[in-house]
Deep mutational scan, measured.
Amino acid sequence: TFVALYDYESRTETDLSFKKGERLQIVNNTEGDWWLAHSLTTGQTGYIPSNYVAP
């Protein structure tokens, strides 16, 4: 799992909003700078900017 370093507000319907400190499970990280992730807090799935999270 990864932890959010910053808050992120989604800009498209495929993005995932999250708050700093939220735990995220990475589903697919082969898309370059945008990873498909599942929030362990909200249960939602969407794309996140990879530079906003850390292991």
Score class of each variant (00 low, 15 high):
43 G>R: 06
43 G>V: 02
29 N>Q: 13
40 L>M: 11
10 S>T: 06
16 L>E: 00
18 F>V: 09
23 R>L: 15
23 R>F: 15
36 L>H: 04
33 D>F: 15
30 T>H: 11
47 Y>D: 03
49 P>T: 02
3 V>R: 04
25 Q>T: 12
33 D>P: 10
39 S>F: 02
30 T>S: 13
48 I>K: 00
42 T>N: 06
52 Y>R: 08
26 I>P: 08
5 L>D: 03
15 D>H: 14
33 D>H: 12
11 R>M: 13
5 L>P: 03
46 G>N: 01
38 H>D: 03
37 A>G: 05
13 E>F: 07
49 P>H: 07
41 T>F: 08
13 E>Q: 10
49 P>N: 09
6 Y>V: 08
5 L>F: 03
31 E>K: 13
52 Y>H: 12
18 F>W: 01
26 I>H: 02
3 V>P: 02
39 S>E: 01
54 A>E: 15
40 L>Q: 08
40 L>S: 06
55 P>M: 10
48 I>D: 01
39 S>M: 03
41 T>G: 06
27 V>F: 12
48 I>R: 00
13 E>N: 12
29 N>Y: 13
22 E>L: 00
48 I>N: 00
44 Q>I: 08
28 N>M: 10
36 L>S: 03
6 Y>W: 12
26 I>A: 08
20 K>Q: 10
18 F>S: 00
20 K>M: 08
5 L>V: 06
36 L>D: 01
30 T>I: 11
53 V>E: 02
3 V>E: 10
18 F>G: 00
53 V>W: 05
42 T>K: 03
43 G>K: 07
36 L>Q: 05
2 F>V: 14
37 A>E: 00
14 T>C: 15
46 G>K: 01
9 E>P: 05
36 L>M: 08
55 P>Y: 09
7 D>C: 05
24 L>S: 00
24 L>T: 00
28 N>I: 11
53 V>R: 01
22 E>T: 05
25 Q>G: 05
3 V>N: 04
39 S>C: 02
36 L>W: 10
44 Q>D: 09
40 L>P: 10
5 L>G: 03
2 F>H: 09
54 A>W: 09
45 T>N: 06
27 V>N: 06
31 E>Q: 13
2 F>L: 07
40 L>W: 07
34 W>D: 04
34 W>Q: 07
4 A>M: 06
48 I>Q: 00
36 L>R: 04
11 R>V: 14
5 L>Y: 04
44 Q>H: 11
55 P>C: 09
33 D>S: 11
21 G>I: 00
14 T>P: 05
26 I>D: 00
25 Q>S: 10
33 D>I: 09
11 R>N: 13
44 Q>C: 10
1 T>W: 15
24 L>A: 00
22 E>N: 04
2 F>E: 01
7 D>S: 06
13 E>G: 12
55 P>G: 07
38 H>N: 08
16 L>V: 06
6 Y>I: 07
52 Y>L: 15
38 H>K: 15
35 W>C: 04
13 E>I: 09
40 L>D: 06
48 I>A: 03
10 S>E: 04
24 L>Y: 01
1 T>F: 15
19 K>Q: 08
8 Y>K: 02
33 D>Q: 11
6 Y>Q: 10
46 G>A: 02
16 L>G: 03
13 E>S: 12
18 F>Q: 00
51 N>A: 14
6 Y>K: 09
24 L>M: 10
53 V>P: 03
20 K>G: 03
42 T>P: 00
1 T>H: 13
50 S>L: 05
21 G>M: 03
21 G>T: 02
9 E>W: 08
4 A>P: 01
9 E>C: 11
50 S>Q: 07
10 S>K: 12
1 T>V: 15
17 S>A: 10
50 S>K: 14
32 G>V: 11
9 E>I: 11
13 E>L: 11
4 A>T: 06
37 A>C: 03
44 Q>L: 14
8 Y>T: 01
47 Y>I: 06
48 I>E: 00
19 K>C: 08
38 H>M: 15
41 T>W: 11
22 E>Q: 06
21 G>L: 03
40 L>N: 06
37 A>R: 00
21 G>R: 02
22 E>Y: 01
38 H>Y: 15
8 Y>P: 00
32 G>S: 13
17 S>K: 05
20 K>C: 07
28 N>P: 06
39 S>R: 05
2 F>P: 01
33 D>A: 12
42 T>R: 04
28 N>E: 11
51 N>R: 10
32 G>E: 12
21 G>K: 02
10 S>C: 08
51 N>W: 15
24 L>D: 00
1 T>A: 10
8 Y>C: 04
39 S>A: 04
46 G>V: 00
46 G>D: 00
20 K>N: 04
17 S>Q: 07
37 A>Q: 00
16 L>W: 02
36 L>P: 01
6 Y>A: 12
45 T>I: 12
37 A>M: 10
41 T>Q: 11
33 D>Y: 14
2 F>N: 01
27 V>W: 12
9 E>Q: 11
29 N>L: 13
39 S>G: 02
45 T>L: 09
32 G>M: 11
11 R>H: 13
50 S>N: 07
51 N>S: 14
31 E>V: 12
39 S>W: 00
6 Y>P: 00
28 N>D: 15
11 R>G: 10
24 L>K: 00
35 W>L: 08
25 Q>A: 11
21 G>P: 00
4 A>N: 01
24 L>N: 00
23 R>W: 14
23 R>N: 09
48 I>P: 00
31 E>W: 12
34 W>F: 11
35 W>I: 09
54 A>P: 07
39 S>L: 05
18 F>I: 11
45 T>E: 09
13 E>W: 06
2 F>A: 06
19 K>P: 01
50 S>H: 09
22 E>C: 04
15 D>Q: 15
12 T>H: 13
54 A>Q: 12
37 A>N: 00
10 S>P: 09
52 Y>D: 04
27 V>D: 07
19 K>H: 09
31 E>M: 15
18 F>A: 02
5 L>C: 11
